[in-house]
Structure formats: C-alpha cells, structure tokens
C-alpha cells in the first residue's frame, strides 16, 4: 500500500513538474533578450488547450499515428520512474536498471519516429532520419557516461551509481552529459525549437502533422525527457542521495533549475549549428565522457 502510494506521488511529481522546465528556459531566453516573454506556466496552458482540441489526422496515417505518441509517453514516464530522486531513491531499483532506462528512451525514439513517418511527409522523414541518426552518437556518449559511473562505484544500479558521484571526472562527465541533454532534447545548438524553417528542424519536423491530444502527449513526453536528463546531470555532479531528505530535495531542485537556466543561456548566446557539424559536437560529448571513464579506470587501478 505504502509502495503504491509512494509510486503514485512520485509519478505525480514527475508529470506535474516536467512542463515547468520549458517555461523556465523560455523565461531565461526572454530575460536575456530584454523581453517579458511568455509566462513560466505557458506549457501547462498549451497542454490543456491541446487536450481539448480536436484532431486532424492525415488521410495516409494509420492508428500508429496515435499509438506511437502514447507508447513513447509511457516509455518516458517509465524511464522517469526508474530515475532516483535524490534521497528518495528510485521507484524500483535493481541490478541493470540503468540499461532498462536507456532502452526505454530508445523505445520512445522508435515510436516517435514511427509516428513521424506515418504521414508520408518528407519533413517527417527528414526529422525522423536526423533524430535516429544523431541518437546513435548520443546513445554512445550516454553508454560511456553510464560506464564511467559504473566504474567509479563498481555497480550498475542507478541509485548506487549516482550516490557516490563526486569523482575526479565528474566535471568532464557533466560537460559530456550536458551535450547529450541538448542533443536528445533538441535544443540549440543541435536543433532550434523555435525555428520556422522546416528544412532545418529535427524534433519539430517530426511532429508537424500532429494535433490535439496526441500532440499534447508528445509535448508532455518531451518535457519529461528534459527533466529526466536534468535530474541525471544534477545527480552525476552532486551526491544528492547522501544528504538529509530536506537538504537533498532542495539541492536537487536547485541543481535542476541551474541546469535549466544553463540551457536557456546556451540558447540565448549561441546559434544553431549547421547539420554537418552536429556529429562533431556529439563526438566531442562522447570524448568528454570517455575521458571521464578513463579517469575512473585509472583511479580504480
């Protein structure tokens, strides 16, 4: 009973807080540009509006057009449930749960790409192709980061791996994972969520033809993914799990906010990279994670 209640509260926290992050990013961008910008809660309003709207579906689309976003959302929410939250730990924790998390993210990617290809639109194809291709490099970087954490702690359970995180390579790892965060969540410099030129988009090109509740689910899923990566990044740098519940929660919240502000700053201060250079930056992220791994291996020996 307690476990069910605890899981429900945890899920509610993830689902309710996630849409806050894009709002914060937009506020930071507006602040840097000297504008007032949309309210921080804008995504909540958008989601509520989309949920009430009717759906226009392409004449070519199969039921997978709706099923894809739904399964992707479930996979992302499931991945979020595996992620430990500071002192509270994860909802379930077992040996190798980190791999389940990585593969749930892959499941979400597969479903989003599937839904994008449903309409036969060339933009959907472009977006999906870019998403799955860049994901190859970011997944490699992510696995390397997981390996570095695993070597540091001698463990492959997420809650254990993240408890002892201040190693010599923590900053390298944080820099590498920040790159992965930006790429996986389609932020500048990899993708511009605000662009109006479909030819240059990744994530937005995939969801061009979505509308109504399925689109709301896609947007909400994307915000869960952003929160997931921000939480992961924060816990890689800070040993939140070791603090007292109150201090740990406060530190984690502060760190997630700091990561979000950083994303907003990057977005305000840099331009989107040309597509040809995207693999180069992702490779750089991978190399940062690899150096962290080598440091961990060296330290272990």
């Amino acid at each position: 009973m307690i476990i069910a209640l605890e899981s429900a509260v945890r899920l509610a926290v993830w689902l309710l807080l996630a849409p806050l992050l894009p709002g914060v990013i937009n506020k930071v961008k507006a602040w840097v540009a000297g504008r007032r910008g949309p309210p921080v809660l804008q995504l909540y309003f958008d989601l509520a509006r989309l949920w009430r709207k009717s759906v226009v579906m392409s004449t070519l689309a199969s039921p997978g057009f709706v099923a894809g976003p739904a399964i992707a959302w479930v996979a992302l929410a499931g991945a979020a449930m595996l992620m430990p939250l500071g002192p509270a730990g994860g909802a379930i924790s077992f040996k190798g749960d980190v791999l389940l998390l990585v593969y749930l993210l892959a499941l979400a990617r597969f479903c989003t790409a599937w839904a994008a290809l449903e309409t036969g639109s060339a933009f959907g194809g472009m977006g999906a192709a870019r998403e799955v291709s860049f994901a190859v490099l970011s997944e490699v970087a992510l696995i390397t980061a997981v390996l570095a954490l695993s070597v540091q702690t001698g463990n492959i359970t997420l809650s254990e791996m993240l408890s002892l995180s201040v190693g010599s390579g923590a900053m390298l790892l944080a820099a590498g994972l920040f790159g992965v965060l930006l790429a996986e969540n389609c932020r500048v410099p990899f993708d511009d969520p605000n662009t109006h030129l479909e030819l240059t988009m990744v994530h937005e090109a995939m969801v061009l033809d979505h509308s109504g509740p399925p689109f709301a689910v896609i947007l909400h899923g994307a915000s869960i993914k952003l929160l997931l990566f921000a939480v992961l990044l924060s816990q890689v740098v800070l040993p939140v799990g070791k603090l007292s519940p109150l201090a740990g929660t406060a530190t984690l919240a502060g760190a997630v906010l700091a990561v979000t502000v950083c994303v907003g700053l990057v977005e305000s201060l840099t331009a989107r990279m040309a597509f040809r250079r995207v693999p180069l930056i992702l490779t750089a992220s991978f190399l940062l994670c690899l150096f962290a791994l080598l440091l961990a291996l060296k330290g272990g020996a």
């Binding site: 709207k53 759906v55 226009v56 579906m57 976003p69 036969g120 639109s121 509740p213």
Partner: peptide
C-alpha cells in the same frame, strides 16, 4: 488516447 482523439472529433485531412 485513441478514444480521446476520437472523442474530440477526429477529422481526416491531407498531409500538410
């Protein structure tokens, strides 16, 4: 989600 999408009035249109 399928019921929700149908319930809000699902229309078919050309791919944009």
């Amino acid at each position: 989600l399928w019921r929700r999408a149908g319930g809000t009035g699902l229309r078919r249109g050309l791919t944009w």
